[in-house]
Design a protein around this nucleic acid. Sequence first.
DNA 1: TCGATTGCCACAAACGTTTGTGTAAAGTGA
DNA 2: TCACTTTACACAAACGTTTGTGGCAATCGA
Lengths: 333, 333
Amino acid sequence: MSKRSSVTLKGLAQELGLSPSTVSRVLNDAAGEESRWASPETSRRILALAHEVGYAKNPYAASLRTARSRLIGVVVPRLQDYVLATIYEGIDEAAAEHGYVAVVANSLDNPDSHEARVRKLMDRRIDGLILGDTPFDGSTLTAIEGEGVPFVLVNRRSPGYPSVTCNDYLGGQLAGEHLAGLGMERIFLLAGKDRMSTSIDRTAGFTERLAEHGIHVPAEHIATGGFDAEAGEEATRRLLDTVGVPDALFAVNDFAAIGALGVLAERGLSVPDDVRIVGYNDTPLASGVGLTTVRSPMHQIGRQGLELLLERMDGKDVESRQLDPELVVRTSA
Amino acid sequence: MSKRSSVTLKGLAQELGLSPSTVSRVLNDAAGEESRWASPETSRRILALAHEVGYAKNPYAASLRTARSRLIGVVVPRLQDYVLATIYEGIDEAAAEHGYVAVVANSLDNPDSHEARVRKLMDRRIDGLILGDTPFDGSTLTAIEGEGVPFVLVNRRSPGYPSVTCNDYLGGQLAGEHLAGLGMERIFLLAGKDRMSTSIDRTAGFTERLAEHGIHVPAEHIATGGFDAEAGEEATRRLLDTVGVPDALFAVNDFAAIGALGVLAERGLSVPDDVRIVGYNDTPLASGVGLTTVRSPMHQIGRQGLELLLERMDGKDVESRQLDPELVVRTSA
DNA sequence: TCGATTGCCACAAACGTTTGTGTAAAGTGA
DNA sequence: TCACTTTACACAAACGTTTGTGGCAATCGA
């Protein structure tokens, strides 16, 4: 396994008494030994030697020549977030299957940081870009459009751009239906960041479905903020302090729901007896704490995001995809 | 912002009436306008035009020439794991500061997958490698050594290799001391994966400190398994079923601790009244559920890991670093 | 039988940098 | 003043691929 990085195409060709061009064509032909670029015998010799010495093509030379990097960039708010990490895993997995490698960057949902990260990826000459941090209004997208790099959105959608997301409106409806079915009336809603489609759609689906059951969620019962446990705690505390104890609470994110769980326990309120809770995403911890939640196909969102991007890179025009979530009922509601 | 990818060094030079060599030297000189490669006036013109047209060097041409990619590879068991995601954030952040970009891959703690991922990174001609998935016996390292790519370990150590880790032995001691101080005697230990230094060291520190207090943790009170919530649940259930209810439980990972929390609740056991629990890492959820835990400097481990790698890449010989954890006491113990 | 096709391969240019070397002009010291 | 160093650049080769073009022999069709 010695320094295979030092053996070049030219070296191989010399060793074989062939020209680099022939070796290159055979090695790049998916047909392998049946390559139409050389005789079967020659093809076999090329493949054999390449394998024997562990030849690995220099991707920089290739990219320089072809002007394609086989790199795809991914930007997410934070990799620490289980949801995005899982989506990224899906992207990475699918990218590998297609011979691409994914490079990821955190934008922290901060426009300046986003801009800097995207620029850095562009400088690396990525062939395509997957954005996981786009607000509903698409405001971070204008600069990217001019660059000529194909991109798609994942997790969060923005009208007019191709994206693959969970059908969050449906997810919200599922949660609403469940709580309505349980006879809940006074309901809190931890709505997450109000500029993101995940929040907007889940909230809309939830409240509208409840409305169909004659249940109204007043504005003072809705708290916006973040998607993490801390934000969930804060929001719950605030709601509890200002409007008292509800029948139930829907958090558009499991982590926020778990934060709420903690605060409720701290106040001596029992779940589900005093308050019922439903979360969103079905992260592993949800099952640990018995949280009823809406399962979103995170891994699939990533995989399909990559595939959608590939199609766009092929010049096809594509349309957005919405993947259906399902409700998983546990002990919290 | 139009297609800055199309403006080349040669183009710049032509525009300026200079040779590409001069432009290249000035642009690469950290001294900026005071570059010793051209007159101040010329330097200024170069920088100005480069900025104006948004010139971005083609990294492939540069890498081809220099045989350095300014890419560093990172392999972790799973990015879904909050701990590793945070370490990676630290690596990524530090890498960016030093002009490198980090590329991450998941090995899933599977040797075959590990091998494949490392190879793929090597094929990309990374300048250095950071491994976050190395077992204590270093068995995954042998193939890498021959490749001539400098590497360091993070999070998990292995004797004889440079690494930056949490001082896990100390962390175990902290937990042991705390529980001993509380008068606990019958203690369960969720030890994680038994081939990893994180498990080994935390377990050793914990049991040895308890031993100093005259407390013995018998083998039947120790469960090995994984680091996640599910593994924590399983292990706890098993221990509860076979040896009854303990005074306290130490999990070498917060997620396992949270899993334990769930099972205890499910059995009607109260925390901390019936059973006290301490976890490890201080992940955000820990504060949400009031978990007493050992805080490990994850982000710092990542940052210092990158810096250690840089030193190794400089040819210096380096020694491993251990960062001190601290106990954070909440309501669970 | 002859012209056309096909199979198999080599030549050489190009991708955009970096860097060793060369060279005039300007500056320096004695 | 002269020998010298320094300043400020230019020239050109090289990094390792990919790919358009071209050529020669064998095969084919009629």
